[in-house]
Amino acid sequence: MSTLDTAGPAAASIASLWWVMLIGATLIFTFVMSLLALTFFRPGIGRGTPVAWWLVGGGLAFPAVVLTPLLIYALWSGERLFPTGDPAVAQVDVVARQWEWTFTYRNATGGAVRSSNTLHIQAGQPVQLNITSTDVIHAFWVPRLAGKIDAIPGHVTVLQLKADTPGVYRGLCAEFCGVAHLEMQFAVEAHEAGAFDAVIGGLPPATPDVNAPRGRP
């Protein structure tokens, strides 16, 4: 379940963002605390320092130097995590309700099929999830694969997911949704291409009520 033990490109990109920020934060923290320590162990050390150094240097220049590249890096890496809307990407409609997940595979050959609490995907292939809820707000989260996104009644949110290798990845509802919030867990099973088709072929057809989610994006 660790966000740092990544198994997909989205989670991996965020994990590297984290490591970069952790190193940066550690350096900054050490620097500031050392300054603070100096003011006690070397009293009067700053008596000759012009006031502007503290305020302009520490208050303005320092954060600017740190934050500008960080923000640009973050926007750049965030941009690539957004769904592309590429029609070639397989689509799965996800409906959350108290307290289960239903997955409808729109593009399955032979009509839409569905599964509950287990999402089947093909390893190495991106899949676009169109997520909504029929009751309260939930959130779809598979820590090892990607960040989370809310399932909101009346709205459809989208998330692009990809697992690099076959395997089973645990997912859970991350937005508090009532007494059985904890139980609202699911699994993402990533299969090899051949096995994937077999699994999808074995799923029951989707009943109409959980077809394509309605609502405004």
Binding site: L71, I72, L75, E79, F82, P83, G85, V158, P217
Partner: peptide, 12 residues
């Protein structure tokens, strides 16, 4: 204003 440089302006 930096945000105005972000390419994806709306969801899909």
């Amino acid at each position: 204003g930096l945000a105005l440089l972000v390419p994806s302006i709306c969801v899909v």
